[in-house]
Simulated scan of single mutants.
Amino acid sequence: MSFDEWFTIEEIDPMTFSISEYGHWEKVHSYLVIGDKYAALIDTGIGIGNIRNVVDQLIFLPIKVITTHVHWDHIGGHGQFNEIYVHELENDWLKNGIPGLPIEVIRHDVSRDISKPLPVDFRIEDYEPFRCEPTSILLDNETIDLGNRTLTCLHTPGHSPGHICIYEEERGYLYTGDLIYKGTLFAFYPTTDPLLFVKSVEKISQIEHVTRILPGHNELDLNKDFIVELNKSCQELLNKGLARHGTGIHDYKDVKIYF
Rank of each mutant, 00 (worst) to 15 (best):
S2C: 11
F3H: 09
W6Q: 00
M15S: 13
T16P: 01
F17P: 01
S18Y: 00
I19M: 15
S20D: 11
Y22R: 12
G23K: 11
H24K: 12
H24P: 13
V28Y: 07
S30F: 05
S30I: 04
L32P: 00
L32H: 10
V33S: 00
V33T: 00
V33M: 02
G35I: 03
G35V: 06
K37V: 06
Y38S: 14
A39C: 13
D43W: 03
T44C: 06
I48P: 05
N53Y: 02
D56R: 13
D56E: 15
F60E: 12
K64S: 07
V65D: 06
I66A: 06
I66K: 08
H71I: 11
G76D: 04
H78E: 09
H78M: 13
Q80L: 12
Q80M: 08
H87N: 14
E88A: 02
N91P: 00
N91F: 13
D92Q: 08
P99S: 01
G100M: 01
P102F: 13
P102H: 10
R107S: 00
R107P: 00
R107H: 00
D109E: 15
V110H: 05
S111C: 03
I114F: 00
K116D: 06
L118S: 03
L118Q: 03
V120Q: 12
E125A: 05
D126T: 01
E128R: 15
P129F: 07
F130L: 09
C132E: 06
S136Y: 12
S136M: 11
D140W: 09
I144D: 04
D145M: 11
L146A: 13
G147P: 09
N148Y: 14
N148L: 15
R149C: 10
T150V: 14
C153T: 15
T156P: 06
P157G: 03
S160C: 04
P161W: 06
Y167H: 07
E168W: 12
E168F: 14
E169Y: 10
E170M: 04
Y173M: 06
L174A: 11
L174W: 13
L174V: 14
G177N: 02
L179R: 07
K182Y: 08
T184P: 09
F188N: 11
P190H: 05
T191G: 09
T192R: 10
D193E: 09
D193P: 11
F197G: 06
V198E: 13
V201N: 13
K203Q: 13
K203L: 14
Q206W: 04
Q206I: 01
E208V: 08
R212T: 04
I213D: 01
H217V: 02
E219D: 13
E219T: 14
L220F: 01
I227T: 07
E229Y: 05
S233T: 10
L237K: 11
G241L: 04
R244C: 08
G246R: 09
G246Q: 12
G246F: 14
G248R: 02
G248W: 01
H250P: 01
H250F: 05
V255T: 14
K256R: 15
Y258P: 12
